[in-house]
């Protein structure tokens, strides 16, 4: 149907040319602004992680069936056991326990183990390396670098004998294992429990309701604002050709920050109004549900027996 004349927009001449030809790819292809691409990929990664944890928490695994409060207390008990034990065997048993828990909860065991042990414990180990030397932890030599020599390092005189002590090595190894085991158990808990239930379970260890509510809302709006940031950066990406200069990158980053800040301020006001309109007066009321089933009792018993035996048994094994 023709458009009525008074409302027909006057198209500028350049807009009247149909240019649908596809150009040959240039030699410099692949140099599309790395900054925007990286930002988009990182945002997507966080959003995928968020969805992944929801997916796993709905799998029909054993831990998914256990009450979040029981799981939280169990994981805390296991982490504390790992923290206080002085036995390498106990740590290995705890790692094995974590691995079994992961497998019976239908989590991708190998992928998660690589992710867990490949980063944070490794960083911890690196940070613990100086503590392995006899400079900080004197003891039985395990690996001797030199003996009875005067050695200077950046103007400081090192000891006449430098070695990695057995005690220092054990301390670093313990730290490495404790971090890895805690991460492994923590991740199992997070992946097998929907976020809202996990946060609510924090009440059993005395975390105030208002604090839980704030974390819950913060997480929810971070995801929302990430979606908004993704739109911002994708809209920019389709209009960006080639590499951006560092000043353009700063400008883009600054303007995105400003847009997000302004949007989040407006949103915050509306969210507060929405809460007020449903009777919120500063003190959140929630339903406390305490329905523990047989599986929860059985799981609790297993964890109590395991941790007690490990703590007591740890005194007798080295």
């Amino acid at each position: 149907m023709p458009i009525d004349k008074p409302y027909r927009p006057e198209l500028p001449p350049w807009m009247q040319n149909n240019n649908t030809s596809c150009q040959e790819p240039s030699r410099n292809r692949g140099k599309h602004s790395g900054f925007i691409k990286k930002t988009i990929n990182e945002i997507k990664k966080v959003m995928v992680d968020d969805r992944t944890s929801e997916y796993f928490s709905r799998q029909p695994g054993l831990l998914q069936a256990v009450d979040p409060r029981v799981k939280l207390l169990a994981v805390l008990a296991l982490i504390i056991t790992a923290g206080i034990t002085r036995s390498l065997y106990i740590l290995l048993i705890l790692e094995l326990t974590g691995a079994v828990m992961m497998m019976i909860s239908r989590l991708p065991f190998t992928k998660l183990q690589l992710r867990i042990w490949g980063f944070i414990p490794m960083l911890t180990l690196l940070a613990a390396v100086p503590g392995m030397f006899n400079i900080f932890n004197d003891g039985t030599p395990l690996l001797v670098f030199y003996e009875n020599r005067d050695v200077f390092f950046m103007g400081f005189q090192l000891p006449q004998t430098l070695f990695i002590s057995l005690q220092g090595f054990k301390a670093a190894l313990f730290l490495f294992l404790r971090v890895g085991i805690s991460l492994s158990l923590g991740l199992t808990l997070i992946l097998t429990t929907p976020l809202d239930r996990l946060l609510k379970s924090l009440r059993v260890i005395g975390v105030p309701t208002i604090f839980i509510m704030i974390i819950e809302m913060t997480y929810r709006y971070i995801i929302l604002l990430l979606g908004l940031s993704l739109d911002l950066f994708e809209a920019r990406k389709v209009r960006t050709v080639g590499e951006l200069s560092s000043s353009a990158r700063r400008l883009l980053f600054g303007s995105s920050l400003a847009v997000l800040f302004s949007r989040s301020t407006m949103l915050a006001e509306e969210v507060y109004q929405a809460m007020t309109a449903r009777g919120y007066t500063g003190e959140a009321v929630t339903i406390e549900e305490m329905n523990l089933g047989n599986i929860d009792l059985l799981f609790s018993m297993c964890i109590i027996v395991l941790t007690t035996s490990l703590v007591i048994g740890g005194r007798f094994i080295g």
């Binding site: 946060l199 819950e216 809302m217 929810r220 709006y221 929302l224 509306e270 929405a274």
Partner: peptide, 11 residues
């Protein structure tokens, strides 16, 4: 509210 995202704040 017009903006459902403002109204739905729990998880």
């Amino acid at each position: 509210f017009q903006n459902s995202d403002a109204q739905l704040f729990t998880s």
